[in-house]
Structures are given as C-alpha cells and as structure tokens.
Amino acid sequence: MDEREWIQRAQAGDRNAFGEIVRLHQARLRAFAARYVDRSEDVFDLVQDAFLDALRNLLVFDARQEFGPWLRAICRNRIRNYWRERRVRRTAHQALVDAALEEGMGAMEDDLDDAVGKIRALERCVGELQPAHRELLQLRYARGIPVADLARRLDRSPPAMSMILCRIRGALMKCMERSLEAGLP
C-alpha cells in the first residue's frame, strides 16, 4: 500500500493508517526540525505537535498532493511559534540573528531528502571521534553547557574552547561529506 492510500484511509477515520503515516515520516521530520531547533527535547515535542496538528486537520488535506511538504509546512509553523515563544528569553542581539534566520527559513530546504542520511552519517562520525571530544560535544550540544563553563571546567580560556569546538565541528562536517559521498549508512 502506498502513502496515498494510507492517507485516504486515515482521512476515512482509520487510526492505524495514521500510525503508519507517522512511522513513515517521523525520522525525516525530526531531522528537518533539528535544523532549526537545537534542543533535542524541543524537537521531540515540536514534531509530535506537528503530527497532532496534521491529524486534526487531515480532512482539509488534498490527498492528490504530496504529504511530506504539507507536513513540513505544519512543522515549520510550529517552529516559528516556538521561536516566538522563545523571544522573551533571548537577548536583543540573539533576537537580531533569530529574525534574520526566520526570514530565510525556506533556504535550508533544498536538500531535504538527505536529512535522515545526514543524521546517520553524523552518528557514525561522532562514533569515530576521540572519547574526550565526544564527551565535550555531548556537554555542549546535549546538555547545552555554555562555552565559558566548559572552559572553566577544562582549565582553558573561552576563546580556546571555542576554537577546539570549531575544529571538532569542522572535522565532523568533513567526515559527514565523505560518508555521504561514499554512500555509507
């Protein structure tokens, strides 16, 4: 059964069919949201909210159209909403950059099909890092510890810590490119 048939069945009230749609799209939608939202728990919630929005509005969807772009548009609304809610916690300077990012939000969607592949490649590349670097990235990106705090913890200056992170990220990007070019999982 193809996606269109699942959608039609879901529109007719078949919840199992909607479950299948969620299963088909969740990984790609999470990868999509992770491009704009750096807190993984927020990505998790946002994508679930987007699926619930889709379920609530399923009948207005024209089943002859592509479902993925429609779902992403819903998710994009959720992301915009998240950014708006976040504004009260942002500094004026962060807000300046946020606004510029929001204006060009569509510019990052030219290679969406690769979103899941990039996550897989990144997982592999992170696994190849030195344990200390992996731990550093985890502190920074999973737990959101500021660079100044990391620097203090590791007896470095903040600029030196930023430099280390930058080099690790650079190495990861190169590794991802190589993995994707080679078609590695």
Binding site: A34, D38, S40, L137, Y141
Partner: peptide
C-alpha cells in the same frame, strides 16, 4: 549541525 548533534546525542 548543532541541532543534528543534539539529535544524535539525545
């Protein structure tokens, strides 16, 4: 990449 790293580590 920052969002993707958070996703990988989650």
């Amino acid at each position: 990449l920052a969002g993707q790293l958070a996703r990988v580590f989650e």
